[in-house]
């Protein structure tokens, strides 16, 4: 493998890794607020992409994406209010079943609305043939969009959790729910907010990546598995580590194509997931508890 090809694989890996990280952060936000894994997280990504594609028929691209994000956020809020909010300290198993049920519901509804067709937003700048030369590597401008927007999103999230009142309230709730209530914080609203945030993040990710990966009514499931792997790899709840873990998975997958048949690409993440769950359930970035002390 020559050095240029090597970097080409790296770039491809980082692109996918970014998206996996975005999905993983969505998992983490809800996990931190509620202690549950929302298995419908991938569906938020799909919903964002699908809605953006549909709205782009009548709206300019940035507006279509913005509207898709807002609509998906509303769906996130609705789901929380309808299915989660009224439960009083539900068991983990019950939550797993409920969120899987929600994901099936969204998928089937999407199949009903959009059919089986594969869709995509147009490239934000240029087309699928355009590429920018960075050193010896050719990079699609869309890759820069994806990485750039995701990076801004991660930074904004960090600012939100560190400096704003609702951000602090959410961290307080995940640190100690009863103590947060004793400070007069409405813990239920914080859970709703976590669903809204996760839905928005997922939808934005789904929109910006759709030109590269395409989107279909069932593409959320794949992404959910990848995102979940990354979230576990980084240590549940630790969003900064999820970014690193996302890159690792993306690059691993990308290089796997060089040595394994392409069909085995998805096996990689499942294998990693199982391995981590067996060997090091707290994630590769050390103790998740310690990591959570310093990260959002």
């Amino acid at each position: 493998m020559n050095i240029d090809l090597f970097f080409q694989y790296i770039v491809a890996g980082l692109t996918y890794g970014t998206i996996y990280a975005v999905v993983a952060i969505g998992f983490n936000i809800i996990y931190n607020a509620t202690g549950i894994i929302n298995f419908a997280q991938g569906e938020f990504v799909m919903l964002g992409g699908m809605t953006a594609v549909t709205l782009h028929q009548i709206l300019p691209l940035p507006l279509a994406i913005l509207a898709a994000v807002i609509i998906t956020m509303a769906v996130g809020a609705l789901i929380e209010i309808l299915f989660i909010r009224w439960l009083d300290r539900p068991s983990v198993l019950r939550m797993v079943i409920i969120t899987i049920g929600i994901s099936i519901l969204i998928r089937e509804a999407s199949l009903h609305i959009w059919g089986e067709g594969v869709r995509a937003l147009p490239y934000f700048t240029g087309s699928s043939e355009t590429s920018i030369r960075l050193g010896g590597v050719f990079v699609s401008p869309q890759v820069l969009w994806v990485v750039g927007i995701s990076a801004v999103m991660v930074i904004l999230l960090n600012v939100f959790f560190t400096y704003t009142l609702p951000g602090r309230q959410m961290r307080a709730c995940s640190a100690n729910r009863d103590a947060a209530r004793l400070c007069g914080i409405n813990a239920k609203n914080m859970v709703t907010l976590s669903f809204v945030l996760s839905a928005g993040i997922g939808a934005l990710g789904g929109s910006i990546v759709s030109p590269i990966t395409y989107v279909q009514y069932d593409s959320g499931t794949q992404l959910a598995i990848k995102g979940f792997t990354v979230a576990i790899l980084g240590g549940l709840g630790n969003s900064a580590a999820a970014v690193g873990a996302g890159m690792i998975l993306g690059v691993l997958e990308s290089f796997s194509i060089a040595v394994l048949p392409a069909a085995y690409k998805d096996v990689i993440s499942i294998a990693i997931l199982l391995l981590i769950l067996f060997v090091r359930p707290s994630g590769i970035f050390g103790s998740s508890e310690a990591a959570r002390l310093s990260e959002f």
């Binding site: 602090r168 103590a179 947060a180 002390l293």
Partner: peptide
């Protein structure tokens, strides 16, 4: 207001 048993501060904050 209640100061709960066992302090219950927000450890990561």
């Amino acid at each position: 207001s209640l100061v709960p048993e066992g302090r219950q501060v927000f450890a990561p904050l």
